[in-house]
Design a protein around this nucleic acid. Sequence first.
DNA 1: CATGAATGAGCTTTCATTCAT
DNA 2: TATGAATGAAAGCTCATTCAT
Lengths: 190, 190, 190, 190
Amino acid sequence: MDPDERRAAILAAARRVFVRKGYHRAGVADIVQEVGVARGTFYRYFEGKREVFAAVLGGVMDEVVGVVRPIDVTRPIPEQIRANLDRLVRAVTDEDVVRVLFAEAQGIDDEGDAALRDFYGAALGRIEAALRTGQALGVVRAGDTRLLARCLLGLIKEPVVQAALFGESLDAAGLVDEITAVLAGGIVKI
Amino acid sequence: MDPDERRAAILAAARRVFVRKGYHRAGVADIVQEVGVARGTFYRYFEGKREVFAAVLGGVMDEVVGVVRPIDVTRPIPEQIRANLDRLVRAVTDEDVVRVLFAEAQGIDDEGDAALRDFYGAALGRIEAALRTGQALGVVRAGDTRLLARCLLGLIKEPVVQAALFGESLDAAGLVDEITAVLAGGIVKI
Amino acid sequence: MDPDERRAAILAAARRVFVRKGYHRAGVADIVQEVGVARGTFYRYFEGKREVFAAVLGGVMDEVVGVVRPIDVTRPIPEQIRANLDRLVRAVTDEDVVRVLFAEAQGIDDEGDAALRDFYGAALGRIEAALRTGQALGVVRAGDTRLLARCLLGLIKEPVVQAALFGESLDAAGLVDEITAVLAGGIVKI
Amino acid sequence: MDPDERRAAILAAARRVFVRKGYHRAGVADIVQEVGVARGTFYRYFEGKREVFAAVLGGVMDEVVGVVRPIDVTRPIPEQIRANLDRLVRAVTDEDVVRVLFAEAQGIDDEGDAALRDFYGAALGRIEAALRTGQALGVVRAGDTRLLARCLLGLIKEPVVQAALFGESLDAAGLVDEITAVLAGGIVKI
DNA sequence: CATGAATGAGCTTTCATTCAT
DNA sequence: TATGAATGAAAGCTCATTCAT
């Protein structure tokens, strides 16, 4: 088997195992059994359990980060916002994202937290850039874009996390509608 | 030392340790060293590491759950909403809450997840009740209150979690203002 | 409560606990709970778990040793032998004897083994003396009385131990008959 | 080292340790030190302390059970009885048998007791079968063969156990002679 | 390059015993 | 004298990692 293929196979197996059992309950034994290689082989492709988790995390991050696209001002803006939101919700609704990225990643070690910071930095950076563009175009109200970006992330992430916690399946379209409504007009009349 | 005091001292020490090191990296050894008692003493007061974490978690939960108060319709509503929001943000901005409740609690074991579900169930139940009352009074727009409650939770929680992740101190008043603005008028014009 | 009474109460409780749970599974906690005194009190009356077991063992031994009586040559011998045998079988059929003396005593520590040696030394000494007397009187056949005494002990002890191991109740009279028959005429024609 | 060899080496070391210290005083640490492997290695070959003791016990049992052979009625019977007895006495005179099987096995846990019951069930079954055959052939007197089998076991086992308890070496031939004499003609004239 | 047996530090937990009250 | 909270050594066991084959 080609080294790259083998590495990919181990990585995929590790992802399945981490999703299934969570970082701490998963063992290297589970991963090597899942992929069908010897323990030693695993250590030829990854430095250890933490490193393979970081790689899994990176893959999941890429999948999520990629869906948020910059606003193209030469094209109609509202539908781009809507499309971005739609893709983001669908991306983070994925079970792997919820388990690996939202539920298990924090607190494993300092490197893991750094990776998480990188991810959220990148994701929030894109969101923030979109908000700034919107402000410049007059479609986003004034305000602290950093905070707004985090609020927006929470608006999307939390319903997904809670649904996972309670074992409910999530209606992505309904969630997009609800978030859109909140974005458009808030919740309360104060 | 009075047994209740001692139990409280161990609990407080455990909380400090869990906040500092996280559940998995913390050991009973750390806790007993922190409080300055023998290993055996710890086991006189708690059944084990999981149980003491559950107790810490319960304490943190109580601190948070208690601040969300039902809306009193006989009194001006907007300021009650604002006050609830203000208390909630301040409560969850506490480092212990962020570390123990938001970052470490999930995925430890089934009992821990059940405790977390109970907590979020209670907290979201209160938020949802407030939203329903608001809808009945015409101050909250129509919509799926369950989803809205979770969105609202995310709106509050995520900026706090992110600030903690990036080691930033958080301006609670600023966050309350921003959230209030989102609640009142959303973010974008779509 | 009178000190002697209290000591006796603790001893009796310890015996019940050792019979019920066996030496290793029994804890000092079980004993003090059984008798209803504090842990510290226990240690005022006995040096520790081993010592109280030794005391229990001694009591059980006394009950067994006492039943074997020297043969009185001025009275009919066969019925004295039969009476001794009868009493011995009935004595060792007692559950406490089986559990404490036959099943749990050996291997706890060197002192325990010494106590056991003392007991068996005394018991076998009496049996051997009886055999020697019998030889002198011509009612016991010639042979190594030490070995014979041990064989005789095994003849009695083993059926009792096996019955306990298999959870059967034992018909003492039937056992006495069988042993008597073996003593009188052996088992096989060789 | 070959896995089977290693397993055998650990088993043999465990046997030596159990014989030397007894089940409860022996620790996994003693065993791994005795054989010169790491703690973890031990757990690759055995599930734990109880399981390795069970394996030791099984080995000892096999050594003993195997020596009692059914009587072949087409060949002279008395010498077969004598030969069986001789082998049995020599087998159980082994120090390991006395320590592991007779002194330490009972009361460790329910599984251990079950194993012991199996062993004694098998051993006594063979003895009883031999006795029944003897009765049919008219060389064994009438009587409850179950009780007789247990008496016979005691006749053999007890002198061995006592000799071990008192640290005496045992003259197997002398014991066989004495037991043979008891079997043939009993002890007393009643 | 692949293997998997071996490693050993580290974990949680137990319980006989002590001693200040 | 009675108490029972405190003690801490020691136990069995796990698992990420290494390395000789």
